[in-house]
């Protein structure tokens, strides 16, 4: 096939092949990403039950949502899980990267080991940790078997701390990725800065805290956005590890949406909950995009 060059092609037929080739992208962008999102937000104002219906009831779904104990548990879990996984991922990820950046031998081996859980799915991760945290046979059972009879470590069966059990699994799975991003950032820093700091006799930890970390600001921001957008989506891990239990103690918003759409046959409620998820992502993404845009424009 050749591009049309005979005569004077009209505007529409310029680059026709490129336009035809881009049809899947255009459809995805317009129909799914824009259209689908708008559709869901739009229908969250209706009282759709089993099937989507255009029967508007204003903000009723949202009022019901924020009055539902299950949703409140889900939000609280997401908040605890989100804050802690953000802090721990960044701290642990950075420390691991800093350790690997000490010009050590076998760096590749260590990196391979720290990163391999990231290749596993959340389902597999959740099931591994469900077994490790099994109160009878897992870590608790082993420590008790050693003679410490009163030892207690059963996060998955204790409604108070179940979300921390999920956090442990999530950190095991995800810190390798953060380490890799941080390591890339550390490698991007000019070697001369280290030399200058050493000449000036600045201790290593001070160099990290006051010089290197501020220089890595863009890396930290990118990492933050990546972690944050992952947090909102947490779903498979909870399904595999606890199925939301004990009771409703480990519910998360993504699971709430799924259950209301496909099991409770209360679509409107599911749409309202997913719209709230969208809102929380917007709150994270928009300031970041604004910062990036603003900075680029000045430069």
């Amino acid at each position: 096939m050749t591009t049309r060059q005979n005569g004077r092609p009209s505007q529409l037929f310029r680059n026709l092949n490129a336009k035809i080739a881009s049809i899947p992208m255009i459809l995805t962008a317009l129909v799914i990403f824009l259209g689908g999102t708008a559709w869901t937000v739009f229908y969250s104002f209706t009282n759709s039950k089993l099937l989507p219906r255009l029967n508007f009831i204003g903000l009723d779904q949202y009022e019901r949502l924020w009055a539902a104990p299950r949703w409140m548990v889900a939000i609280e879990n997401l908040a605890i899980y989100g804050v802690l996984s953000l802090i721990f991922s960044l701290v642990v990820g950075f420390l691991l990267a800093a350790l690997l950046d000490q010009k050590i031998r076998f760096e590749d081996t260590f990196r391979t080991i720290f990163l391999y859980p990231f290749a596993l799915s959340f389902i597999v991760t959740g099931l591994i940790w469900q077994w490790l945290l099994n109160p009878d046979f897992g870590i608790q059972g082993v420590v008790r078997g050693l003679g410490w009879e009163s030892f207690e470590f059963d996060p998955l069966y204790n409604a108070e701390i179940v979300i921390y059990g999920i956090l442990i699994a999530a950190l095991w799975q995800g810190t390798g990725l953060i380490m890799c991003l941080m390591l890339a950032g550390l490698r991007g820093i000019d070697e001369d800065i280290w030399k200058a700091a050493r000449v000036d006799g600045i201790p290593m930890w001070k160099t990290y805290v006051f010089i290197i970390i501020p220089m890595m600001r863009p890396v930290f921001i990118t990492t933050l956005v990546i972690i944050a957008s992952g947090i909102v989506r947490v779903y498979d891990l909870v399904v595999a590890q606890t199925s939301g239990g004990p009771g409703i103690a480990s519910e998360v918003p993504a699971k709430y949406v799924y259950d209301y759409m496909f099991h409770a046959q209360n679509l409107g409620q599911g749409f309202a909950a997913s719209t709230m998820m969208l809102l929380s992502v917007i709150i994270v993404i928009v300031p970041w995009a604004y910062l990036e845009f603003g900075r680029r424009r000045h430069v």
């Binding site: 999102t37 989506r233 909950a273 997913s274 719209t275």
Partner: peptide, 26 residues
């Protein structure tokens, strides 16, 4: 590059951040 291509591409990239749950039902 054709006119408007960048707009679709930007929508596509921003769309990567939208939680899947929002687009599941449509």
């Amino acid at each position: 590059r054709f006119k408007g291509a960048d707009i679709f591409f930007t929508i596509l990239i921003v769309g990567a951040f939208i939680p899947y749950q929002v687009m599941i039902y449509p």
